[in-house]
Design a protein around this nucleic acid. Sequence first.
RNA 1: GGCGCUAUCGUCUAGGGGUUAGGACGUGAGAUUCUCAAUCUUAAAACACGGGUUCGAUUCCCGUUAGCGCUACCA
Length: 489
Amino acid sequence: MTDQTSSSAPIRVRIAPSPTGDPHVGTAYIGLINYIYARQRGGQFVLRIEDTDRTRFVPTSEQMIFDALRWLGLSWDEGPDVGGPYGPYRQSERSDIYREYVDKLVANGTAYRCFCTAEKLEEDRKRQMAAKLPPRYPGTCRWLTQAEIDNNLASGLPFTIRMKVPDEGSTTFTDELRGSITFEHKNVDDQVLLKSDGFPTYHLANVVDDHLMRITDVIRAEEWISSTPKHVLLYQAFGWDLPRFWHMPLLRNIDKSKISKRKNPVSLIYYRQAGFLPGAVLNFLGLMGGGMPADINNGTEKFTLAEMVEHFNVKNIRTGGPVFDLTKLKWLNGEYLRSISLDDFYSALRSTVLSDEYLRNIAELIQTRIETLGQFGDLTGFFFADNVVPSLEVYVPKKRTIEETLAFATEQLAVLEASDWTPAALEPALKKFGEEKQWSVKENFMLLRAIVTGGTMSPPLLESLVVFGKARTLDRVRRFLDSQKKQSK
RNA sequence: GGCGCUAUCGUCUAGGGGUUAGGACGUGAGAUUCUCAAUCUUAAAACACGGGUUCGAUUCCCGUUAGCGCUACCA
């Protein structure tokens, strides 16, 4: 087995978010741990954008990730926007590099071209599942002769490149938090390294980049443990030293499942817009899994990022997945709000829920709808509320049942999730959905209006939603659905 | 199903072979207060189960159970 990296190299860590949507609270958590680890050791903290899946790529996502991490105060030393000696830091700009390195693997026999079609793979999988076998790539293309390969290439068949995992033996690596972990090779699949579109998969890109960027410590979430043997095998196939691996516990929903937007606000945009202070969010994240000595600040649970850098011990993080408890976060945030000066409190208000931009956008919606300025609040209360609760009479259309309405609202939420956040995008999406369900535009929009504003009267709905923000709107709809579900139980 | 990880109050955690198992959030009660928060006092609340090892296990080992993750040409 290759030795894991010696401690003499200058510490370099990274976070590698994918720009597939809103910046995620899990990214902030892993980012925090990486940041602390690097700062404690005078190391470098790298931000790398893993945008190799163009089917899930969201163009606005990258900037939102930058903004959210900056908001939290987790600054990086190298990244797509700040540059650095090991760039580019966007994987989509490194295609040539991956191709060059994967060719080496094909040349040294640790990877091979696979011409299997998606349909065939799907069939194989189904057959294996039916036979209660673990779904694994059967290795069909491992044994292609050179003539067959040349032939396939000549006729322009699309192909992927897979790693050749040894049939026998096992791979053992050290997780710095859990100790030694072993996987039998018979349980490790011949992972695709290069997709047929020429983009690498996570596994290839990650290993190549971590090596090329001199990453010494891979600190990532627990969900990667099962793929780590593949990564170790890749390092070995290249003849490279291993980094240290640290797998952090996965943040959980109240029901203990992996944290998800279905059950918890996970967008950092939401936390910002709903008025959480970055220090409180960071502090709360630092509480997850322990890591901070119990006797800091007289045993209080309140501490700053600087204090975390000073005292936090990554090695002491507990590996049981902590529930991300919004109730406690709110309490903590309240503590922070109470502890700052009135001036700071007021400016926090003015930079978020009472920002000029927000207020002006709202003003635009109501200018023609009020007679005196004093009526401003009457029409706009829902913009400033944490939540609203429409009564049954308000949200259930006259000719519909509660069940029907809630079912409609549930699917409507999915439509909102999938839509770009502009009136021009929302309107056709919502109308199309309403038509399919044979709900009138009036019923359709009034329901949404009731859920988001709590009443039957409001400025134009879609414009209001856009001003209110996607993250907060979705959260409000989800909370509404949750509360109705609970009531009906 | 297979593989892997995990297991202290409802939640976040401290602790560790002998403890009244500590703190925080939340919850209940009380005090204070014009109301509501805040604040203070106080109460209830946990070592998943079964075997070992040991004079003694919540703590160490094994197993069971449960939860979670992975099982994609997603990350």
